[in-house]
Amino acid sequence: MRNLVRANTTEFWLILVILALSLFLSAATEQFFSLVNFTDLMNTSAVNLIFAMGLVVVLIAGGIDISFAVAASVVQYVTALALMSLGGGNWALGFIIAGLCGITLGAVNAALIHHFRIISIVVTIATFNVFFGLLMFFTRGVSIYNLPDWWSARIILWEQETASGAWAELTLPVLVMSICVFLTWMLIGHSSTGRQLYAYGDNPEAARRIGINEAAMQYIAFGWLGLMTGIAGLMQVNYAQEVVPNALFGRELDVLAAVVLGGARLGGGRGTVFGCVMGVLLIAIAENGLNLLGVSPYAFKMVVGAIILVAITLSNLSLDTLVRQRT
């Protein structure tokens, strides 16, 4: 147990902070500790969590990706056009097209990184501009509202009327998110491939010498993020019920902040699914709590930014660095 806490200090602190925040919000507001609020939180966080599951794998493998959010917009557009030309399609087809499209865009990043030895931040900043620029150019910024019914329909998997008369409900994105979380957990925590990804991110030179296939690592990491990107794009459309080409612009940095808050390290080798979920939830709960407390929506981001800034300062100023700096 002590080892568990020692090895996962960030996760441990996150739980404490989330518990404290939840206790405070439960006491300060009536609505926070309610089934309706909880399901709302899950529904709104689902897409970010799916993105986070992909990004954490890339971070663990020692890379970074700035392009995934606009890649998701590309996926949405391509999928919408493909489905329309196929006469509507269905969920299975939607997942296949979106997934393949996402994986392809991820593979483009991986190929540039691996075969031309360009570091991931340079590659993905370039592809960010390419993906977004081409998308806006070809679509002229026009949104698609005329989507197949199955795609934009709100699918409620579970619902319950609460005492207050409001309905608590969980929608499809939550189920899909749970599956993605489970699969990512299996991949990075419990499969040999996942452990190779950790090793590769931790010490690439040592990984090469022990016989880990570098190309495979890049393609798996960025391919997985691509897959998650495709699925997240699909789910975001289901949630928003429209395809807006610049809807996800800027989302990459929000997800990145949440994932790194959850203990993943820029530079590789560290990060867990659990921490990642905690990171996304902490930000979601903070926004949700501010909303319930009646704080102006304009102030949300400011407070969230301040929370992240303080959190990373404190989590990096661990006790031993403080002691070392004093001496």
Binding site: A7, S192, R195, Q196, Y198, A199, D202, N203, E205, A206, A207, R209, I210, G269, R270
Partner: peptide, 17 residues
């Protein structure tokens, strides 16, 4: 050429992975 973030067991027996 070890992996600092991984456990002692994983470092020693990495071959099995």
């Amino acid at each position: 050429a070890l992996f600092p973030e991984m456990t002692v067991a994983e470092n020693i027996a990495f071959e099995t992975l």
